[in-house]
């Protein structure tokens, strides 16, 4: 069961952080825009240079190669990018897992990327990420472009995935109700530091 550890981990705009996210645990992050939430997630995924170290399932980030780390610690950026023409160019196999869970039929694999709505892109990006079975999820506002119904599907899928796989989840969300719903622990970023968020 993978847990995610940060050791004196420092990304741009934040003070060093020590944090453990247990197996199957979901923590949420919130804070004003520009406070460094997205940069923290990018640094944990090791896409940006940073100070300190991290570990997943006992494996140190500094001990394994970049792509090995990123296949274990999956980042879902706020904006998804696509390189092929069709949906199927980005997903493995004839029937990728979780397609139905987010309301897509098998015929959607032949859809043109250029014609996807922003909500469809966001859901397909999550399916694409989960297909690689990462042990930790770093989610940057995964329901920002979604309506209530599809948003609930995404919340349900992430919840099932982390329980079944025991994945550690860090979830950036602007919606206080969503944070209260999905988080085991919640943090706010204030003055370059993480503080516990409480619900009154």
């Amino acid at each position: 069961m993978p847990s995610l550890h940060l050791y004196q981990f420092q990304s741009l705009g934040l003070d060093p952080i020590d944090l453990t996210v247990g197996p199957g645990e979901c923590i949420t992050l919130a804070g004003p825009s520009g406070c460094g939430k997205s940069l923290l997630l990018r640094a944990i995924a090791d896409l940006d240079p940073h100070e300190g170290d991290a570990a997943i399932d006992g494996l140190r980030q500094s001990r394994i190669r970049g792509h090995e780390w990123r296949s274990r610690v999956g980042l879902l950026p706020a904006e998804s990018h696509w390189w092929g023409d069709r949906v199927r160019d980005h997903l493995p196999g004839a029937e990728p897992p979780h397609l139905q869970d987010l309301g897509f039929g098998v015929d959607s694999l032949d859809w043109s990327i250029a014609r996807l709505s922003s909500g469809e892109k966001q859901r397909l990006a999550l399916i694409r990420l989960l297909a690689g079975q990462p042990g930790a999820l770093l989610l940057d506002e995964p329901t920002a472009n979604l309506d209530q119904k599809t948003g609930q599907w995404v919340e349900a899928l992430i919840d099932t995935y982390r329980r079944e796989k025991g994945a550690a989840v860090i979830w950036v969300s602007h919606d206080p109700e969503q944070r209260e719903r999905v988080s085991d622990r919640a943090f706010l970023i204030e003055d370059r530091m993480l503080r516990c968020e409480t619900w009154n």
């Binding site: 995924a45 190669r65 970049g66 792509h67 999956g74 950026p77 904006e79 390189w83 990420l129 690689g132």
Partner: peptide, 22 residues
């Protein structure tokens, strides 16, 4: 121009060589 697509491949665990191949 295609930095987004390259980084998307990296986040999915591709190595640098595959990510820039095309």
């Amino acid at each position: 121009q295609r930095r987004g697509a390259i980084e998307a491949k990296l986040t999915l665990g591709w190595n640098w060589d595959n990510a820039i191949r095309d």
